[in-house]
């Protein structure tokens, strides 16, 4: 357990994500063992690491799909999932936790589109039901987003009728519809056939160029090198090494990083 960490509040370049000594246990299983990581606004941070190292768990902690069991995690200066009174933490009411999640978009490895809704309905569901946006406005915005991910002609199509790459692009549009300030990607291309990976990465590149703050768990080293501002190598529930992607990839400092990279590169 780390000491009290004050919410960083410097006016220029306030971190979008600030994790300090984040721990996560599932019962007896200690998955995250003190993660320290800062993501600045506008930055693209890529996360790599062996299976079971806790990458997914860490992403899920950022938007509080999982409750952290130690340390502090701030998004845009706001402590996630807890209220801090003195040096005691109180769990937030589910409704407030839901409110915190609204401006954090998440894209899953297996897309998780709503299969009973068309592409457009998938995109407008949360803006209409959660943000109480007017239906016409939401539909117009939704159509624009689908066009932006190259699926303007698929609005009436159900997920089962789309290819994996198309489904993932709808999932990205669905997350963007909530106008998030941070996007989390959990291995967005690892369930895709090789020839479909490019179309999803292209959408993500475009998003990065538009200035979106992104945390991307990926094994696409090319993407990390080209788009990433920072590359983080996780193993055993801690950040082993991080730095400029080119540096980490070509001159890893840690033995564990070297061993991992020699296997994936």
């Amino acid at each position: 357990m780390t000491s009290f960490v004050k919410s960083p509040n410097s006016p220029s370049g306030q971190p979008m994500v600030d994790a300090a000594g984040v721990h996560k246990r599932f019962g007896g299983l200690h998955v995250l063992r003190g993660i320290d990581l800062t993501v600045r606004t506008g930055e693209v941070v890529c996360v790599i690491g062996p299976s079971g190292s806790g990458k997914t768990t860490f992403l899920r902690c950022i938007n509080h799909l999982e409750q952290i069991t130690g340390g502090r995690l701030y998004v845009d200066g706001v402590l996630m999932g807890y209220r801090e009174r003195g040096d005691k933490l109180h769990e937030l009411h589910p409704r407030e936790a839901a409110r915190q999640r609204r401006d954090i978009g998440m894209v899953f490895q297996h897309f998780n589109l709503f299969p009973h809704m068309t592409a457009l309905q998938n995109v407008v569901e949360a803006p209409i039901r959660v943000q109480k946006m007017r239906k016409d406005d939401a539909l117009a915005a939704g159509r624009q987003l689908l066009a932006r991910v190259g699926l303007g002609d698929k609005e009436d199509t159900y997920p089962a009728q789309l290819s994996g790459g198309q489904q993932q692009r709808v999932a990205i549009a669905r997350a963007l519809a909530m106008k998030p300030k941070l996007m989390l990607f959990d291995e967005p291309t690892s369930a895709l056939d090789p020839e479909l990976i490019g179309e999803v990465l292209d959408v993500m590149k475009q998003l990065a160029n538009d200035g979106m703050t992104m945390v991307v768990v990926t094994h696409e080293v090319g993407f990390a090198r080209e788009v990433g501002d920072k590359l983080v190598f996780m193993d055993g529930g801690v950040v082993v090494e991080s730095g400029k992607p080119a540096d980490v990839l070509s001159r890893p400092q840690q033995e564990r990083t070297k061993a991992f990279l020699s296997k994936v590169l």
Binding site: N63, L65, P94, R95, A98, R99, R101, R102, I104, G105, M106, F108, H110, N112, L113, F114, P115, H116, E125, A126, R129, V130, A171, R174, A175, M178
Partner: peptide, 27 residues
């Protein structure tokens, strides 16, 4: 209904009740 469905709904800021009513029960 797979857990991924309520994960996705929750990540969009939907409450538990809304997730049940709009996402889980229809499926």
């Amino acid at each position: 209904v797979g857990e991924g469905q309520s994960d996705a709904a929750t990540a969009l800021g939907m409450s538990w009740g809304l997730t049940m009513r709009r996402i889980v029960l229809p499926q």
